[in-house]
Computed example of a mutant assay.
Amino acid sequence: MTWPVALLVALSGLATAIPLVTFAYSVQHSHYLTVNFIQYLNPLIQFCMAVFLLHEPMLAQGYAAFGVIWVTIAVYSFGAMRGYWERLKPHAR
């Protein structure tokens, strides 16, 4: 392996390691609900960018699936927030 190729391999490893380390740090210092929500939100934002900014072709079934995903995220978030507020009620008295 020549040195430019070795350098590219080393840099690609570093480019992979940095997001993994920052993700591990954020998981340890955040609420799991926040981490789970971001894990769902990130691919959806990428999908929106592909469809609306880059004008990727999309069928009606894809838009229906996209809507279902957003509804499930809303239901999940509402349930989690409701549970959070229910846990706080005894402390409010």
Rank of each mutant, 00 (worst) to 15 (best):
F23Q: 10
F78R: 05
V21H: 13
Y63H: 01
V21Q: 13
T34W: 04
Y40W: 13
A64K: 01
I38E: 05
L14T: 11
A60Q: 07
F66M: 14
T16L: 15
G13M: 12
Y25V: 12
A80N: 09
W70R: 10
H91G: 02
I45F: 05
A92V: 13
W3E: 11
I45D: 04
Y32K: 02
S77A: 14
A6C: 03
T22L: 15
A50R: 13
Q61R: 00
I69Q: 08
V5H: 06
S77K: 02
Q46H: 14
N36Q: 07
A15R: 14
F78V: 10
W85M: 11
L54I: 11
H29R: 09
A50S: 10
S30T: 13
I18K: 04
T34M: 07
E86F: 11
Y40K: 08
A64N: 01
A24F: 15
T22Y: 03
W3P: 12
T34F: 10
I38D: 04
M81L: 11
S77N: 09
H91Q: 12
L59Q: 12
N36Y: 06
Y32S: 09
H55T: 04
P43L: 10
I69V: 13
R82K: 08
I45N: 05
A80V: 07
A65C: 01
V5N: 07
I69A: 10
N42V: 12
Y25R: 12
L53D: 11
L20Q: 15
I45W: 07
A6N: 10
A15K: 07
A50Y: 04
I45H: 04
I73Y: 02
I69T: 10
Y84M: 11
A65Y: 00
Y25G: 06
R87D: 14
F47W: 14
L11W: 08
L33I: 04
G67A: 13
A50N: 03
Q28I: 05
A80C: 12
F37N: 04
C48N: 10
A80D: 05
Q39N: 06
H91T: 07
A24I: 11
E86P: 02
V71Y: 01
Y76Q: 12
G62L: 00
S30G: 03
G79Q: 15
F23D: 13
W85D: 03
S12P: 01
V27N: 02
A10P: 01
H29A: 01
A80P: 02
V27I: 12
G13K: 14
I18V: 15
T22F: 11
L88Y: 02
T34K: 07
R82F: 15
A17V: 14
L44K: 00
Y40H: 14
V51S: 09
L53H: 05
C48A: 14
V27H: 09
Q39L: 09
R93A: 06
T22R: 13
W85Q: 02
M58Q: 14
L33G: 07
P4T: 10
P4Q: 06
L44P: 00
G79L: 15
L11I: 08
P43D: 09
Y32H: 04
T34P: 01
A10W: 00
R93T: 04
G67P: 08
S26N: 14
L41Y: 13
F23A: 15
S77Q: 05
L11Y: 01
P19I: 08
F52S: 03
W70D: 05
